[in-house]
Each structure stands twice: as C-alpha cells, then as structure tokens.
C-alpha cells in the first residue's frame, strides 16, 4: 500500500520541486457577469487575490455575494449564461482562462479539486462510492492504474479521512451525511491536487461532525502541503482553520489579509459589522451591531462603494467613487474610503 502511495507522491515530486516560492494561485482583476433577460448581473467585480503554496484562504460573505461564483470561475464550470469579462486566473504559472476546454478538463481534479456544498447529492446514486473515486483516478493519473492499485489507493484515502475502507464497495445511500462528506474529501485528495476549493464543506452536517470534518481537513492540508480555499458564510467556522481571510460583499472583495489581522482589526465597515454580529460562546460578551437592510440587487449595483447604502459611516464620496484596495498594514488590504473611522472591535476593548 505504501508503495502505491509513493508512486502517486512521486508524480508530484517529479513535476515541480518543492522549493518554488511563488504563489500557487493568482486571481487578477476578475470580472464575471451573468447574462439575464433583464440585463447583466454583476456577480464578481474586479476581484484579485493570491494564495501561496500550502496556504489556506477563507472567503466569507452573505449568500449571493459572489463566493461561489469565484469558485465556479476557478473551476471554469460556470453556467452557460455566465461571462468572464476580464481578468486572469493563474494556477501554477498557467492562465486557466486561456486553456482550451479539453486542457481545462484534464486540469480539473488533477490540479484543482473541489469539496462541494451539498455532499448529500454530490454522489451519483447508482454507482459505488469507490467506483466514483476510481473514475477520477482513472481519468487523471499519468498512467491509468489497474483496478487493484486504484482500490488500494482509495482504501488508503478512506483510512485517512476516517472511513472504513470496506465502505468503498457500498452505494451512496448506505452512507450517512458525514460519511458522504468524508468520502468527498477522499475523492478530492485522490489525484493530489495543487489546490482544493471547499465550498461550504460542512453546512449540511450537524455541529459535532462539522468540527471533526474541519479538523481532518486541516490536518490533511498540513500533511500534504496543498492549498485550500474555504468558502463559507460562517465567519467563525472559517477563521479557525485559515491563514488568510477575504471578506466579500456584493461581488467585490472588500477586505483581505491574514486571518488574525482581519479578525482582530477589521477595517472595512462590512467586515466589522459581520464580525461584531457573530456571537462567541467562549469570548467576552459583545454588543451585537445589527446589519441593516438588504443585499443590493446586482442587476443594478449601487454606484461608488457597493456597501454605502447600508454603511453607517457612508459619506457623499462613497456614493460617487469606488474605493480602491489599499494596503493599510503589511498584507492587510481594505477597500474603503473611511476605514479609519471604523472603531476597534468592542470585544478587544472590553
């Protein structure tokens, strides 16, 4: 079994020495719209970020803020009516947006895998779970392995994510929700991707299982040194396990930095409201600042800063001009004209 494993690991070693210091993924001024009957819906507006090797990034925001649209853009699995208008997605030196469909298909799962939102339904009900993982292995390993070798690898992955290897001969309906999600993680690891996108990986699970699955993901990431993008609406969940944090609002990345910086000193009013409205059981008592109003209609996004209609610190400038991403301290970027007015977290002062 270990022999098989080293074979797979060998594939990665041969391709790229681990010394390479550059970022694994670079998203550069990405703009993506959905075409609808009534006009364009601006889903991702001028978003840029990078992820280093072995690092993890969390993307948070309300539903409909463009997190999942970014994930879909990274996989190039957008619906037919989506158009990437501008920008680059550079994975390990190659711009994914310039690849042919066939080249992109080969990259998927091999370079960039995904853990899905609805683990319940992400398994095809008529095939054995093991066979569905083997499908990915057969497609992407340099040399298509025999059934025995592939199965050995799957068994190993199952053990890694805490599943009984005998389960690989079972059908999805015989798995519980948590087990399905673990199996999805095993499948994501099956081709040793450079980066994994985990889109709400634990939403469908109950709290205890959620905790376990996240813990496992983190330890696996440390063990294999791959990069992970976590996407969640739940900032508390994400902050525990990521190195970097990006806060999105209405299709824009409004704040980005090291998780502890953003968490301790949120500078964008939206991030500040989001964080201070998250109660903590263990931490000190907070005065919850409610986030008022509705997320904007992206068919007709607000002028200037997209957050200004809901922002307690908004000025005339906010309605007129779009704030640029500014580096306010090393590695901590904010897009806000009045970030200085955002108060310190009350939890800190208390």
């Amino acid at each position: 079994m270990t022999a098989d494993r080293s074979m797979v690991a060998g594939k990665q070693e041969g391709e790229k020495p681990e010394l390479d210091p550059g970022p694994i993924l670079e998203v550069d001024h990405l703009i993506m719209n959905y075409r609808t009957k009534d006009g364009y819906v601006s889903a991702v507006q001028d978003v840029s970020f990078t992820i280093g090797r072995g690092e993890s990034l969390g993307l948070v925001g309300e539903s409909g803020c463009g997190k999942t649209s970014i994930a879909m853009s990274l996989m190039r699995l957008l619906p037919d009516n989506a158009e990437i208008q501008a920008g680059k997605i550079v994975l390990d030196g190659d711009n994914l947006l310039e690849l042919s469909d066939e080249e992109m298909r080969r990259r998927r799962w091999n370079d960039i895998a995904m853990i899905f939102q609805g683990a319940m339904n992400s398994w095809n009900p008529v095939y054995r779970v093991g066979d569905q993982i083997r499908e990915a292995i057969d497609l992407h390993w340099e040399e298509k392995p025999t059934v025995a070798v592939a199965n050995a690898r799957i068994a190993e992955l199952f053990e890694l994510v805490g599943l009984d290897p005998a389960m690989m001969d079972r059908y999805p309906h015989e798995f519980s929700g948590g087990m399905k999600q673990r199996a999805v993680i095993a499948m994501a690891l099956s081709c040793d991707p450079k980066i994994i996108i985990a889109d709400e990986p634990t939403t469908a699970l109950d709290v205890i299982v959620q905790e376990q699955v996240l813990e496992e993901l983190r330890s696996i990431q440390h063990e294999f040194g791959m990069s992970i993008i976590y996407i969640s609406h739940d900032i508390a969940v994400i902050a525990e396990i990521t190195d970097h944090l990006g806060v999105m609002y209405a299709g824009k990345l409004v704040e980005h930095g090291l998780t502890e910086d953003v968490f301790a000193r949120p500078r964008h009013p939206y991030a500040w409201l989001l964080l201070s409205s998250t109660p903590s059981v263990t931490g000190p008592r907070l005065n919850l600042n409610p986030l008022e109003g509705e997320p904007p209609d992206l068919l007709h996004p607000p002028t200037g800063c997209r957050f200004h209609p809901r922002c307690p610190f908004a000025t005339d400038q906010c309605a007129a001009e779009e704030p640029p991403m500014e580096e306010i301290e090393p590695g901590h970027l904010v897009a806000c004209w009045n970030y200085e007015q955002v108060p310190e977290m009350k939890a800190e002062s208390a």
Partner: peptide, 14 residues
C-alpha cells in the same frame, strides 16, 4: 440539474 452531474464535471469527466 442534479449535483452529481456537477461533481462529474468538476472531476474532469469528458
């Protein structure tokens, strides 16, 4: 429209 079709696409299945 099912999720597993999306999974298959993400897996790079032709």
């Amino acid at each position: 429209r099912e999720d597993y079709i999306f999974t298959a696409r993400a897996k790079g299945v032709p």
